[in-house]
Design a protein around this nucleic acid. Structure first.
Lengths: 240, 240
DNA sequence: TTGCCACTGTGACTTCTGTCACGGGGAGGC
DNA sequence: GCCTCCCCGTGACAGAAGTCACAGTGGCAA
């Protein structure tokens, strides 16, 4: 390890890496891990770095060892949609690399990240030689499909922006909510604008709907923490 | 082979199957193919059969040897959205089988189909033992992700129903259009209602927009064939 | 402190499109 | 032939939400 400017150590060597846990792509047997280690290059990015841009040829895949990144797509007129937020342990750009197709999204780190990068050809060689890694890729891709389908369901099947927002808040409760006396507490680490990009609506409607939910006593917001008082009401709004 | 009620022969044996071409999942080396053959069961379905339903536990995967099937998702109030149309050579339900999660869509054949079915456990065993098949699964899943992302882009980023419809028609031109003297000809094998389910809008708007396009001379429709006279106009409508 | 900037909150207006309602037409069954 | 579906075409209307415009707020830096 050597020290880095972003407050954490760069892990040079996958075998001795402490971030890894068994949900990670890289939780592999020793030999495969070593091969992955040798094929890849570690680096550290500050928040806000762009790893790759939609439409670029897929030169390689990126593994998030630590940190989070947001994936988004944009239309020609500048509107953009956040497709998902990727966490540590995920592999980005695999689908495009395998198909040798352009990246379908733009990836931007949203906090300091440690990333490993593998060139396309080497990645393919790697997974063809290591069946276990290949299977892990199928798992990774299955997750991506799963998420994408959920997103399709939410975008295509909901009747109103409120429904989509309610759905999103419930999903947040699932993944990061802590139960408290007054309800489920969670950190909003997004601005209204970003939320609007996540559910495909406008910033103002997000503000308005949150305001309405607050008035109806469903939730309350102070600073960046949101408390959901009436989860049942949110669930009732969702017909998905 | 033995004869079947739906006008084509049931292929009992993958090795001697003539449907297979190298775009198919099952274009595998002899030993892997034999294993796949032994793990799977062939059957024939008429059009309109439901292979599996959204929300069911993923008991297995289905391989379309011949025919087409539509995948759709539904909301509680009965609205439904067609996520895609799967063609011969595709594997359905892989993602869910790998994650051991419920199927995310309902699959219904839209023409007589020959299908092979493999139980989940056997499928996983099969791909873990045959690296080449496993790699093919990553390809299949990459395609699914790719499609899903395109769908997300279309649903989430387009400003109007016309834009989505124009996008869809252009996609049809790509995959099944034949160039003629008056423009690109293609077969509409869908009702307006189904189209509306594909782009997440109502039947009436599809009718109206098509009518408008006809009036503007962009396309003309007779019976089930559509002729696109002015492809540029359609492209101009799409800002995706 | 002051200024700046990004974020949130609100009002007014307009457009899109979903919904309801109905009519016509073609295919298929009896 | 006739009846019954299903599909397409249209009109009227209302509600949802995008857009524009602007005010208030809070954090951060100079």
């Amino acid at each position: 390890m050597r020290s880095s400017p972003y407050g954490f150590e760069i892990v040079e060597n996958c075998s001795s890496c402490s971030f890894r846990d068994n949900t990670f792509f890289c939780s592999l047997a020793a030999t495969a891990l070593k091969a992955f280690d040798q094929a890849s290059v570690a680096s550290v990015y500050p928040g806000g770095s762009v790893l790759y841009v939609e439409g670029q040829a897929a030169r390689g895949v990126f593994m998030i060892c630590r940190g989070k990144a947001k994936l988004s797509i944009a239309s020609r007129d500048g509107k953009s949609l956040i497709t998902r937020v990727a966490h540590a342990g995920e592999l980005l750009g695999v689908g495009s690399a395998i198909l040798d197709a352009p990246y379908q999204a733009t990836v931007e780190t949203i906090e300091p990240c440690q990333i490993r990068h593998v060139k396309r050809e080497e990645f393919i060689k790697f997974i063809r030689e290591h069946a276990d890694a290949c299977y892990r890729v199928t798992e990774q891709l299955s997750h991506e499909c799963h998420n994408a389908n959920d997103h399709i369901r939410s975008l295509g099947l909901s009747h109103s922006a409120s429904e989509k927002l309610a759905h999103l808040i419930l999903a947040w409760c699932e993944e990061g909510g802590r139960e408290g006396a007054t309800g489920t507490r969670l950190k909003m680490m997004m601005t209204h604008h970003e939320v609007s990009q996540l559910i495909g609506t406008s910033r103002e409607t997000v503000t308005r709907i949150l305001g309405e939910m607050r008035e109806r006593g469903i939730l309350s917001i102070r600073g960046s923490t949101m408390v959901i008082h009436n989860r049942a009401a949110l669930e009732a709004m969702v017909l998905l």
